[in-house]
Every structure is written in C-alpha cells, then in structure tokens.
Design a protein around this nucleic acid. Structure first.
Lengths: 346, 346
DNA sequence: TTGTATGCGTTATCAT
DNA sequence: ATGATAACGCATACAA
C-alpha cells in the first residue's frame, strides 16, 4: 500500500511510450484510429498501473458527464422503485450512471436536486414524481429546467407536468374511471375515496376519473366522500379510521394508490370489518404487494416498469423541436378485495 | 431562451468587478476572508447571471467530489430502502450527493460500480450488501477498495465483510438464535428453514444462529431441513412449494428474511394451509410489510434505519488507523404467525 | 495513424 | 483582504 499517488493518463502514456492523445483515444475515445499494436501497449500499461479514469476531468473536458439523474418522491415506495427498475434496464450497458434522487415529497428538495444535477452537468434528468399544482413551484421548476436544457441537457417527465418536454403519460384518468365503473357495477353506492395530496396532478387526474364514472352511470358525485391521504401506508390507515370516526358507513373504499389501500386494510382489520364481506376495498398502481395481502387487492395495473423503460428510451433519443408524449394505458385488475354489495344490507 | 452560453465563475467575477479568486471564495470557499461589500456584489452578480457551479470542475480542482456512493443489492427490497433512508437522514444538509448503486445481486456489477465510484472520485463508498463467501470475488473487491482508500476515499461496510474497514454489524447470529429458540419453545420440532443465497455471509450467520438454538435446546439439527432461496419473494413462494413437493410436513417454517416469508405465505394460502393453525411461519428483518400481511409476521427486528444512520455517521468521521466496528442488536418480535404446535397433531 | 498544444471551470498558492 | 496564476486530468482541433 505504498502508492498513494494517483495514476493519470499521462502516466499510462509514458509507460506505454506513446503520447497522451493516443492513450486517451485508446482508453476513452470512440475513435478507432489507433493501431492494434499501440492499443495493446496502452491497455497493458493501464492494467499494470491500475489506472482508473477520472470521470470529473472527462466531464469537464467534454462539458457533459455521463450521469442520468432520476428524481423520485420516495425511493422506498414500490411505485417508484418499479419505475427505477425499468429506467435501469433500458439504460443498461450505455455507460451511463444512474443517479437516484429522493425528494421525500418535499418541493424544496426537488429544486435542490435540479440544481445539483445541473451542477454536475448531468446528461439527462428524468422527473418521475408527479407534477405539482402549486403555481410558484411550477415556475421555479420550469426556470431550472429551462436553464438545464439551454446548457445542453435532456429532460424527460413521467406523468403530467406543467413543463413542456418529452413525457411518458400513464392514463390515470382512464384507469380511475374504469375502476370506479367496476365498483359501481358491483352495486356499491356508498363509496368513500381516500385521496392523494391535493397538490399533485396524479391525485387530480384519478379523482377526475372517478367523477367521470359516476357521471357515466348517471349518478351524482358527492365531493364529501373524499378524505385526503398522502399516498403513504400510514395515511391510508389513518384516513380509514377517520372515515368511521366521522360516521361514514361505506360499502366500498377506493384508495387512490395501493400503499394507502394496504394501510386501509390494516385499519379495517383492527376494526373487525371483513373484506370484502363487510366492505370492499380497491387500490391503484398494482404494486407487487397488492397480490400478497389478504384478500388480494383489486386495483389498476399501471405498467411501472414499462414506463421507466420508455422514459429512458426517450431520453436516449436526441431532443426534438416539439416535445413527444408517450401514452401508456392502465387497466383494471380484479382480485378478491372487491365484492358485490350484499343485498341484505341497505 | 437565447443565452445558450454557460455562465462561469469568470463571468460572475467580471460582472461583479472582482477577481476570479474572490468570486470563488464567495461562492464556494469555506474562507470568510471577503469583505461583506464585495461578497454582496458577487452574490448579486451570480443571481443575475443565474450562475450554476460546475461540480465537475470543482471535483477536478479539489481532487475529490462530494458524492457518497451506496451499493445495495436491490433498491426495491425494503431491507435496503430502509437502510437508505437512514443513510440519507444522516447525510442531510452535509452538501453530499447520495448516489445509489443497485447491483441486482450481481457480483460483477458490484465490481463495476466500485470502479465507477472510484472514477468519480467519490468521497465515500458504503457497501450495504452482504459480504460474499466467494474467495475470488472478495479478492477483487479488496483490490478495488484498497485502491480507492489509497486515493483518499473512505469506505464503510454494512454487515460482515472480508474487507477490513469501518463496519456496522447487525447481530444476525444472535437474532436468529433467539428467533429459533422461540420457535422451539412453542413446541415445534419439525422445522423447515428457507435459506438465503449460500454465498452470502448473512445467510451463514443466520443459519449459524439457528443451529445454536438447536444446540441450546439439546436437539440435533438436521441440515436437510434447509431449502435454499435467494431472499426474493418469489423464491420464498417456490421454496415452500418445493418443500411440500418433496414430502416435508413441517409444523413451522423459518424464512431467513421477510420477503421470502411473504412469498411463503402466498404459497401456503394457495395450498389451503392456515397460518398459524396448520403451520407456523416466521421471517427476519421486520420490514414494514411484515406487520401488514395476514397473519402479521413474527420476525426479528433489525433496525435498518438506524444502521444506515450509523454507517453515514461513521463515514463522516475521519478515517482511523485501525477500523471501527459498530455492533447493532436485533430482537425478536412476536406476532400472530407463530403459534404453539397443536397437541392434537403428532 | 500519431503527436502537439490548448482549453474546460475551479481551487489553491502565491504575491501584494 | 484581494488579485494573478499555476495546477487539476482529460479530450480534441490541428499539425505532422
């Protein structure tokens, strides 16, 4: 362990008896303009010296680093980790480094990460978190994104956003509409909805879909049936308890994502209510656990993995003048947690 | 959007009417040696010009970037995302950028990431995946880590490893021993164990603990009761089916992690076996879903979050001559999935 | 095909 | 306290 000096390309070049330029071409250049003989000498020297390239110097020289930053709301949320898997799969073998940024649903932190990625001259920024309804925040995000794009960066958005750029758009509204239609078709009329954070476009879109289903069936939608959650398991549990505490007696509960549905399941169990015998329960997203809980959750399958892949693929294509939108369908998955409203009960 | 030129510190300095050095001191230097007046001029100019620092240039000049790399086996596995939360929390506000590297349990990819982080001159590498029992791989990891440390990097390991360095060590053996003791105390003798990947030290340690519990009770441990899994939910499901397919009739199943236990639960349900009436089931780690499945899982609580925090705290302390080890206890959590062996059954 | 020389944006070491 | 200038390690335009 005596060699505390860092080995640079110059060292490699000297050792191989070639110029710095040639060494550079061999080690990193996409150029093939080096004779096999010299190439071998350089590779050999690099190995002997245990040369490790300095990515920062490369990024500085090239004015762009090989980093792809992905901004998510919560890395522990299966919704995002599934998307990440897709992004990763599509980025495999491209030599790009995936940088995962977790905002914890904090808009402030989202802005910080945007600046950070810009500072690192990332090649691409993928924003996987839902767009916000907060006007000031949208402006701030737009400003940062503009600056980033002007500097030569690529931006891809997942879900509806207020920034114009390439986007992958899951059909939240259509999925919710189909889901609620199914719930109504099972005879339910006393429906409670556990909503998401009011400032997210995902929440708005899914609620919209629910409303449309009521309209489709010629029923009136009572806004009071919505109780807010924040997309976390805990909030689903709390919201469910709150529901009963305020006297509601739904025959079906619709959680706007699976995590909250799982929380709701726990709450219902604590209250001694059986699903779906006493009350039906449905979620949204179809994350892996949805099939593991008892009873298995009826939900809307959003192909998270696929969405991540598409996003990454968009990112790798050169920027176009206008912006492209890739629409992704979402379909209802019926499982045990949704039952017919018992005819014996009013 | 006309300004496609990138703003540099030189631009800021010129605009503020000061030298590059002064501008640098104001924007990034820890130095306080700048008059309030000039400082304000620089800050103002930077804001007007929308200056964004070039992190690559900084890293090159400082010979070290502000990146902390965390290597995990699977970002979607709650075990790791919980650890990540802890790391993140402890790193909050330090200006360090968290880089999450997902190996998908592929040793080859682990090596690649090690090189990548070295290339980016990361300040710290945290390896959260369990150590391997594969000798060749350990040597390769050791070589890379040595080079990284020699170059001035910090390394912190989570779980037992064959590399000497600062480490956070959860008590896998003790936890498994206590868990198995509990299982035996409930009267179970026909016990099946769903093991982890044979090359992971975590698997070895937990199995060891199980063996010790048998010895403690004066019972002989039959190695044949172990069936291999790979720590994934799917493998837990498959292993359980395999168990019955080969004719085993355990009264209790011990999965060496919760994910596999959840999979086992699904398999048992498919087979019409009730838990814990027909067969008891326990897991390990106490990830969030453990409490959400039905019945709730008896398991061993490993304070994942805390482990991540400790790791990050260790990382922020300067390297010491010897290496430090932070031991973390694990304790059994009794929930509904573990029952007494029915006396009516043989 | 190979080598020479310059620039990338900052930090840090000197002077002043 | 402030300014001039030399690294930092690499890619690349240009020359040979």
């Amino acid at each position: 362990m005596r060699d505390a000096e860092t080995v640079t390309l110059v060292d490699v070049a000297r050792r191989a008896g070639v110029s710095l330029a040639t060494a550079s071409r061999v080690m990193n250049g996409s150029d093939r303009k080096v004779s096999p003989e010299l190439r071998e000498r350089v590779v050999g020297a690099a190995r002997e010296l245990r040369y490790v390239r300095n990515a920062n110097a490369q990024a500085l020289a090239k004015a762009r680093s090989a980093i792809v930053g992905v901004i998510v709301h919560d890395i522990g949320d299966p919704y995002f980790s599934e998307i990440l898997r897709g992004v990763e799969a599509a980025g495999e073998g491209t030599g790009q480094l995936l940088l995962v940024c977790d905002t914890h649903r904090d808009p402030e932190r989202e802005l910080e990460y945007l600046t950070l990625l810009h500072a690192h001259r990332a090649s691409t920024i993928v924003i996987a978190g839902s767009g916000h309804e907060d006007r000031a925040h949208n402006v701030a995000v737009g400003t940062r994104l503009d600056a980033f794009v002007n500097g030569g960066g690529r931006v891809v958005l997942i879900g509806r956003h207020h920034y114009g750029g390439d986007a992958v758009l899951p059909d939240n509204r259509g999925g919710a509409r189909a889901l609620m239609r199914e719930v109504l078709a099972h005879g339910h009329r006393a429906v409670a909805i556990i909503g998401g954070p009011p400032h997210l476009t995902t929440t708005h879109d899914r609620l919209d879909g629910c409303r449309l289903a009521f309209a489709d069936a010629g029923l009136t939608f009572d806004p009071a049936c919505v109780i807010d959650g924040d997309f976390s398991r805990e909030s689903g549990e709390a919201a469910t308890h709150a529901l009963y505490a305020r006297g509601d007696e739904p025959t079906a509960i619709v959680a706007l994502n699976d995590e909250m549905a799982v929380g709701a399941l726990t709450a219902l169990r604590e209250r001694g209510l059986r699903v779906p015998d006493d009350v039906s329960l449905v979620g949204f997203d179809d994350i892996p656990v949805a099939a593991d809980v008892t009873p298995a959750l009826t939900t809307v399958n959003v192909p998270l993995n696929h969405i991540g892949e598409v996003a990454m693929r968009l990112a790798r294509e050169p920027a176009s003048d206008g912006f492209r939108a890739a629409h992704v369908a979402a379909h209802v998955v019926i499982r045990a947690s949704l039952g017919k409203r018992s005819l014996l009960k009013p």
